[in-house]
């Protein structure tokens, strides 16, 4: 009996091993296919953009048609202002909302908020642009950094809120109970114990949200607008930004403007890589939290 049965398991083993190898190959192929576009985009942007990156790019205004040289300094500054404003609007709402959902969110209202946030996260960026155009741009009679900031801020809220909620929930109950048992109030416990424990993850969420909105063009089209001059005012005049610069200049017929657009694309991509890397760095080993 036993001597006859012996070869069969060995055959099974060979088949299992072959199947395992085959599946491994498929998995690796899938990974390569997924990474390939990213690699192509990166190399292409680097090849095209590197030639545009020089000191002038970061310090000078775009030159009018016909003149060579010039830079995208105004768009860089504009992007910084808009993203700064967006963070000022979006982060407090997102973080406080996330804390609310995690700490007090076992009711119908919180369920609705959570659902609304998920829907908002899926709303096309251009729709948010139109919405803010109607809400801010029309009453204020024109494009402004403020309107662009509000539009991007609205886009930040759902991501920041949901990541904050998830990470605050991850903080072990034993820590909250330790604080409550010492006679700390609920808000004190959240502020002194829960938030610091969740800090790494929340910062990661914030960085990723900023990285995501910094490259958005659609919500800025009607809100921040475009200008080829300096603009550091919050309201009353349109503000240039890197994504809109790419949109405007890439569709123009001028070689020099194309070059600026590629340069801006490279700056945006590098900025995003840096933010993602920073997010990684902040979270390294932190998601385990304490116990």
């Amino acid at each position: 009996m036993t001597t006859q049965a012996a070869p069969r398991p060995r055959l099974h083993y060979a088949r299992r091993k072959a199947m395992n190898g085959l599946m491994w190959v498929f998995a690796v192929l899938a990974v390569l296919l997924a990474v390939l576009p990213l690699a192509l985009v990166l190399t292409y942007v680097i090849i095209q953009g590197a030639s545009a990156i020089n000191w002038d790019f970061f310090t000078k205004l775009p030159k009018p048609v016909g003149e060579t040289g010039g830079g995208a300094a105004n768009a860089l500054l504009g992007s910084l202002i808009i993203v700064g404003l967006a963070s000022a609007f979006g982060l407090p709402i997102g973080i406080l909302g996330g804390i609310y959902l995690a700490e007090f969110g076992n009711n119908r209202f919180a369920f609705t908020v959570r659902f609304a946030a998920d829907v908002l996260a899926g709303v096309p960026a251009i729709v948010i642009g139109i919405f803010i155009w109607a809400l801010v741009v029309i009453p204020m009679h024109g494009n402004s950094a403020l309107a662009g900031g509000v539009a991007l801020g609205v886009m930040m809220v759902p991501t920041v809120m949901r990541t904050t909620e998830e990470l605050v929930r991850l903080v072990p109950r034993s820590l909250r109970e330790a604080s409550l048992a010492l006679g700390a109030s609920h808000w004190r416990t959240v502020l002194s114990i829960v938030l610091p424990a969740a800090r790494g993850g929340v910062i990661t969420g914030i960085l990723l949200a900023i990285a995501r909105i910094a490259g958005e063009a659609a919500p800025l089209l009607f809100t921040a607008g475009w200008s080829s001059y300096w603009s550091a005012r919050l309201a009353g005049q349109p503000v240039p930004s890197l994504p809109i610069l790419i949109f405007q200049y890439a569709s123009s017929p001028y070689e020099d403007w194309h070059r600026l657009a590629w340069g801006s694309a490279l700056v945006l991509v590098v900025l995003m890589l840096l933010l993602s890397a920073a997010a990684r760095y902040v979270t390294r080993g932190k998601l385990r939290l304490v116990r």
Partner: peptide, 30 residues
């Protein structure tokens, strides 16, 4: 106020993720 008068030690030690000093100082501080 009640929990200040009635303290609790849990099954698993649950120190806060801070220094030894700050752990003990947490209650008096709040």
């Amino acid at each position: 106020a009640l929990r200040r008068r009635v303290g609790m030690v849990f099954q698993r030690a649950n120190p806060f993720p801070m220094s030894i000093f700050d752990n003990v100082a947490y209650g008096p501080r709040i």
